[in-house]
């Protein structure tokens, strides 16, 4: 049965789009049929992170409005045959997405894919609400930083009240994905620890993505982190997260980048 998963955060710039691309690619690499849907109308970027920016013809809004068929708007990844993208529109019409329209697109995607990953825009407005509206589960991307944790808490509250599942009295399964984590700084007491964040949000942990230059390198060339350098620390952290999403039990470790002795000493600490 198809799973609809929203990647959300409240706060901007924490790594929603990077994570959607990386999780989507990792799922596809494991043989799942995946579509990643960009809900950031007006500020689409998932196409860019996936390296498909020049192949966009039709988008989510065209499909919602009946201008294009779903099959015309879906873009198949050139590297992974199981990975597809449904891009957002660059129009700035805020009301172009309707609840019913999104509902029918998601329903159609459910018949064609194993996983539907919805990349939410930042904020708590209409776009973010619609991205989470039909979700079965949610990945809440959080940085170890006070404003990000606060916004995550707010989003968790919305997932528990504003989704179709919540309205039916069911629960959206929630997972926290901590990104840009620096275990050295956490060990020195300069950064909120994993324990602090989980205790505050009381939501289970899906994975810990270490701060890494690989993330920027991958987006520079338009390739998901998990595809660009499969041996890198963030790539293996995303792959672990995906295995947990698929129900496997994977020991929680913070993959460490192989660098200087000092970094390695400090890096091991909080793992």
């Amino acid at each position: 049965m198809a799973q609809v998963l929203v990647v959300t955060s409240g706060k901007g710039g924490v790594g929603k789009t990077t994570s959607t691309a990386a999780l989507g690619a990792a799922l596809a690499q494991m043989g799942e049929k995946v579509v990643v849907v960009d809900f950031d109308v007006g500020l689409r970027n998932l196409d860019l992170v996936l390296g498909a920016e020049r192949r966009v013809v039709f988008d989510l809004i065209n499909v919602v409005q009946g201008v294009a068929k779903l099959s015309q708007a879906l873009i198949r990844d050139k590297r992974l045959e199981n990975l597809w993208l449904l891009p957002a529109s660059q129009t700035r019409d805020k009301d172009a997405l309707t609840d019913e329209g999104v509902g029918s697109v998601i329903a159609e995607l459910r018949t064609k894919f194993d996983w539907i990953l919805c990349d939410s825009p930042a904020g708590i407005e209409r776009g973010a609400m619609l991205a989470m509206r039909y979700a079965d589960e949610a990945v809440i991307v959080t940085n170890p930083e006070v404003s990000s944790v606060r916004d995550s808490d707010r989003i968790i509250g919305m997932l528990d009240s504003k989704t179709v599942k919540a309205e039916r009295g069911e629960r959206v399964e929630k997972h926290v994905l901590i990104t840009r984590y620096d275990s050295g700084r956490a060990a020195r007491g300069e950064m909120l620890s994993i324990e602090d964040i989980l205790e505050i949000l009381s939501t289970p942990l899906l994975g810990i993505i270490p701060e890494s230059q690989e993330v920027l390198r991958a987006s520079n060339v338009g390739s998901p982190v998990t595809l660009n350098n499969t041996n890198s620390a963030p790539a293996s952290a995303y792959v672990d997260a995906v295995r947990r999403l698929m129900g496997e039990t994977v020991t929680m470790i913070v993959p460490v980048e192989r660098k200087g002795l000092m970094n390695r000493l400090l890096g091991r600490r909080a793992a």
């Binding site: 006070v146 606060r150 020195r188 007491g189 300069e190 909120l192 602090d196 600490r269």
Partner: peptide, 19 residues
Amino acid sequence: LRLMSGRTATAPVARERLQ
């Protein structure tokens, strides 16, 4: 580690403020 870095830990403050 904290002594070596010569800085005070700010994470506990962040944690308390958030709570």
